[in-house]
Design a protein around this nucleic acid. Sequence first.
DNA 1: CCTACCGATCGGTAGG
DNA 2: CCTACCGATCGGTAGG
Lengths: 202, 202
Amino acid sequence: MTSANTTPTVTESAPAVRADIVEAATRVFSEHGYDGASMAQIAAEVGMRKPSLYHHVRKKEDLLFAIHGQLIDELTLETRQAIDAAADPAAQLAASLRVAMTFVSRNRDAVTVFLQENRAVRGERWDEVVGKRDAYERMVQEILSNGAATGAFVNIPPKIASKAILAMANWGYTWFNPDGPMSADEVADIFARIALTGLSKP
Amino acid sequence: MTSANTTPTVTESAPAVRADIVEAATRVFSEHGYDGASMAQIAAEVGMRKPSLYHHVRKKEDLLFAIHGQLIDELTLETRQAIDAAADPAAQLAASLRVAMTFVSRNRDAVTVFLQENRAVRGERWDEVVGKRDAYERMVQEILSNGAATGAFVNIPPKIASKAILAMANWGYTWFNPDGPMSADEVADIFARIALTGLSKP
DNA sequence: CCTACCGATCGGTAGG
DNA sequence: CCTACCGATCGGTAGG
């Protein structure tokens, strides 16, 4: 309605609209669940009607797919960098927990969808996402097996120990409050201390 | 349609039918999610049509309520007994993890519903269930604060440490396989070892 | 416990 | 001819 944009860009704001829709879907899926959310609600969040949404998205499932894909890519990248920057397995474990907890803190809705709405995550197109999830878990397992190899860690099956580590961070989506008394880093450091030296007094 | 039942019982098999319905609902909710599950599916699982289900259940939500209530009551009772039978905080922590992991193993569907379908858990009638969930968590917190008081445990905020402990057991519903290579008790003992003495070599 | 339905709302698509 | 939408309605299914 304002003066026309005379720049020669072709697709103008199309990609931004798509990103807005995925963000809206993240909020709506997080609040109502994938099945409980309606395309009309998501459309309303970005200021359009439902049929207009279908000009940007082919199916409801496409939105869930986008949320999962973005999350695992970002989390994997940040975790990879943190691990590579850390000196030894203990520091790598602590760094991974810091990344995971701050990620949960910054992206609560997306993490909620990622961890809670995976019933629809089936079929061919989802294989890639599932593969990336497995690869993320393997990064943590490798920290543990490296630690055992260098003698820094005790000999505990990495596959089971990684479940304990990831559980601490993942479970945060059910209770962690970014506006609460402790920061994500502070919580992560406590979890790292529990994982590394335990609760028993030496 | 067969010969009439002449026994003078009034409600006949009503309680058993009700239990069958709740069990069927547990399976169907676990597989499809609360919103994704239909009353017709649950009815079919117990061999009736949807309208007949409403002779035993007033609302879909009643089934979710029954599942949550049963689970938290049973888990609380078993955990209370295990804690009371253990000699010291370290043994109590290990015993709690054993109860939690075996519970997850024995009641995978119910635990999945309990942990994943709590969006509908709101409003007056749910206050009792939420209160019982809090009470369960407080049992674990007390083990940790008792351990800190007696000098057995290091000084870590019990509210945060309890999140780490409960996370390990709760997260099991996403991966633990009762038919897998390790038993629930074996996994619980590894988790207890991580929680008590950590992964780092002394 | 059944068949026959209801008001509403679902995901998705028609023509314009 | 394009884009970005609209009002209306599609076939099915939800809880009741």
